[in-house]
Simulated scan of single mutants.
Amino acid sequence: MTAPTIWAVIPAAGRGTRFGGDIPKQYLEVAGQPLIAYALDALLAHPRVAGAMVALAANDQRWPGWTELHGKPVLRCVGGGERADSVLAALQALPADVGGDALVLVHDAARPNLQRGDLDRLIEAATGEADGAILAAPVRDTLKRADGGDRIMATEPREHLWRALTPQAFRRGALSDALRRAQSDGIVVTDEAMAMERAGAHPRLVEGREDNLKVTTAADLALADYLLSHRRRVGAT
């Protein structure tokens, strides 16, 4: 049986307004490189991944102009106002020979510490799952429900709750259809799995590392810098 084609999609059209500052967070530097460089490197270093499509803002002046990494194509397209719009634009812009059954890995541009082992397990799981699979982490903290005044109303059970991570892996055709349906229904989905869930799918949860963090705050950036600097030092020894 022939292994399915795998492409990576990186939505990077956002401004990262929650982080603050003039630089979109995907271009913030840690350990000498922008966050998006680490995201691309982790994906394209995998032997099963054939290439990447990056969805950028129409007026992006910071894109370094990469066209190849690890001998594989790095393509770009214009994204949209919401994450789902950018992912759909990227799916539509993939090369014509990437069929509807091709596996697509959607990964956050500001999630720089993806490890090879997690990617191996995700691809293995998603290859055998018609509904796809996502990296995720079980919720380990105690959860509190608050009222409008930030006072505790209740303690919520954490059993069977997971934090969604990326990459999230789905077939190109099924994910495109699910995103279009959500768009038509006026629903803003916050990740690809949510779109697939609305279409009736039940994606597999693949436990991933807790340090596969998404940079959202200054504290996240400092932690990412520490983790990546440590990886570089260990790799050099």
Rank of each mutant, 00 (worst) to 15 (best):
A3P: 07
P4L: 12
T5I: 02
G14I: 07
G14C: 02
R18M: 03
R18N: 10
G20N: 09
G20D: 02
P24I: 05
P24L: 13
P34H: 01
L35W: 13
L35N: 10
L35P: 06
D41G: 00
L44W: 10
P47I: 06
R48N: 06
M53L: 10
A58Q: 14
N59G: 03
N59I: 03
Q61K: 15
R62V: 08
W63S: 12
W63M: 04
P64R: 02
G65K: 06
E68C: 10
L75F: 03
V78A: 05
G81K: 11
G81A: 08
R83Y: 00
V87H: 01
A89D: 01
A90I: 01
A93Y: 02
P95W: 03
G99C: 15
D101R: 14
V104A: 09
D108C: 10
P112Q: 03
D120P: 09
D120W: 15
A125I: 13
E129S: 15
G132N: 02
A146S: 08
G148K: 14
G149P: 14
D150R: 14
I152G: 15
T155E: 11
L161C: 07
G173C: 08
S176A: 14
A178L: 06
A182E: 06
D185W: 09
V188S: 05
V188N: 15
V189D: 08
D191H: 12
E192W: 04
A193F: 14
M194D: 07
E197F: 13
E197M: 11
L205H: 00
E207S: 08
E210P: 08
E210H: 14
K214Q: 12
T217D: 03
D220P: 12
L223F: 04
S229K: 12
H230S: 10
V234Q: 10
